[in-house]
Design a protein around this nucleic acid. Structure first.
Length: 417
RNA sequence: GCGGGUGUAGCUCAGUUGGUUAGAGCGCCAGAUUGUGAUUCUGGAAGUCGCCGGUUCAAUCCCGGUCACUCGCCCCA
């Protein structure tokens, strides 16, 4: 059969996957709102400049991963490859510096033109948390607490570990970066090909290299902790103490880095070994330079993003929010249709989930009810109509009894729909 | 963007050392059972063997290209 395929790297979300998404989002929303975060929805596309300015002209995301096009008015626009830039733009556009701290959560599709693999699509969905306007480490701690609560409630915390690092403030990071460049430049001949490119473009990323040969060099490379100035040290220890106070476990991974210039201090990733090469389930950090870089007032910020598809792979079936079990209305004989419809309508108005098939004899309709995992089938024939009753069959038990139409709603509710 | 693997029914997969009608299980549809489902039994539909081209008397099978998926790299959620 000739297939109509969706665009490469995009997927339809339906059936069980849709249930998984909904479960994840509802838990996310519930956790975020408990921390008094408010929802913000920014457009899924922005002027290309918004992303270029913040992500940098040389980053991979900008150079090869953006979905960019010219609209009919001649504007260069880009489908968002991440949330933070759009939210920071919205912060500036809406003059929200007047109402800091801004605690946001957001959710939606995100686009990167990449080669698809497991856990990596061209259109994927992220959940996002940001606190803008707070320079204190409490914000970092709180944002991590949200993440931890989310993972706990999704039942996947046991498969995930928090890797934590500090990049230090700007001064510390610049000094460290210089030291790294100097060190690796002395060992150019031993570096992998990829790492030679990184040395030019993004030297700190060498620390994350998967190349065996690089590992030996990385072992002896300068450590970022040796370059923290006093403010950086204090800030990092505040974050760590805060996490310990809340009982949030973490592992310091001093090779965890961020390439982009606006990142500072806290950087973290929740990773799992259950998703192949794409082990990062949730990641973020502090970005004190971002809003200013976009042309807004100097404003600190911290946040994270999490990939829903990756989460959806990890959650187990028992946590998935099941669809409410429905009641199937089964008219018996053509003359019962109108009354059956009316009963279905009344039950729906009472908040009960009802399905009535469009055709078929009783046997077919019962089969359908069973396939839909209905809890009750309600048979309504002329006989019942005359006596104002319904034959209610419990499909789990196989038993059935006549219930007065007047008591039907109460009966169904009592029997836990 | 780079390298490897895979592509047969809605799903999971057999199969053909190139040969005439391509199979199974599950699912789906129908009947046994026109006022009672999940079990059972019987029957049925469903495939241009991913697509295009090449080699051949003959290609689902061999070769090339292409598309999609997949594993890894780059990078990232």
């Amino acid at each position: 059969m000739a297939r109509l395929q969706p665009v490469r790297g995009t997927h339809d979300i339906l059936g069980e996957m849709s249930l998984r998404f909904r479960t994840i989002f509802e838990i996310f929303r519930s956790v975020a709102e408990r921390y008094s975060h408010e929802q913000i929805d920014t457009p899924i596309f922005e002027f290309t400049e918004t992303f270029k300015k913040t992500l940098g002209d040389t980053s991979d995301v900008v150079t090869k991963e953006m979905y960019t096009f010219e609209d009919r008015g001649g504007e260069q626009v880009t489908l968002r490859p991440e949330f933070t830039a759009g939210i920071a733009r919205a912060f500036i556009s809406n003059c929200l510096q007047q109402s800091t701290p801004c605690k946001f959560y957001s959710f939606g599709p995100t686009f990167r033109y990449e080669r698809p693999q497991k856990g990596r699509m061209r259109q994927f969905h992220q959940m996002d948390i940001e606190i803008i306007g707070v320079a204190e480490a409490q914000a970092d701690i709180e944002v991590l607490a949200i993440a931890q609560d989310l993972l706990n409630e999704l039942g996947i915390a046991k498969h995930v570990t928090l890797e934590l690092n500090s990049l230090g403030d700007r001064e510390s990071r610049m000094n460290y970066r210089a030291a790294l460049v100097q060190y690796f430049s002395q060992h150019r001949d031993k570096l992998s090909k990829d790492s030679l490119t990184r040395l030019e473009k993004n030297p700190m990323r060498i620390l994350d290299s998967k190349d065996e040969g690089d590992h030996l060099l990385i072992e002896k490379a300068p450590r970022i902790s040796e370059y923290y100035n006093d403010t950086s040290k204090v800030f990092f220890s505040e974050v760590r103490e805060g996490l310990e106070g809340l009982g949030i476990d973490y592992h310091i991974k001093d090779r965890l880095v961020r390439g982009l210039d606006y990142y500072c201090h806290t950087a973290f990733e929740f990773t799992t070994d259950q998703l192949g090469a794409q082990g990062t389930v949730l990641a973020g950090g502090r970005y004190d330079g971002l809003v200013e870089m976009m042309g807004g007032p100097r404003t600190p910020g911290v946040g994270w993003a999490s990939g829903m598809e990756r989460m959806a792979e990890l959650i187990t079936y028992d946590i998935i929010k099941k669809q409410v079990r429905l009641v199937a209305i089964v008219p018996v004989g053509d003359k019962s249709h109108t009354t059956a419809m009316k009963i279905a309508h009344d039950l729906r108005k009472a908040g009960i989930v009802v399905d009535m098939a469009y055709k078929g004899n009783v046997g077919k309709r019962m089969k359908r009810a069973n396939k839909q995992n209905a809890r009750f089938a309600i048979l309504i024939g002329e006989d019942e109509i005359v006596r104002s009753v319904a034959m209610v069959k419990n499909l789990d038990k196989g038993s059935q009894e006549e219930i007065s139409l007047l008591k039907l709603v109460d009966y169904l509710k009592e029997n836990k729909l």
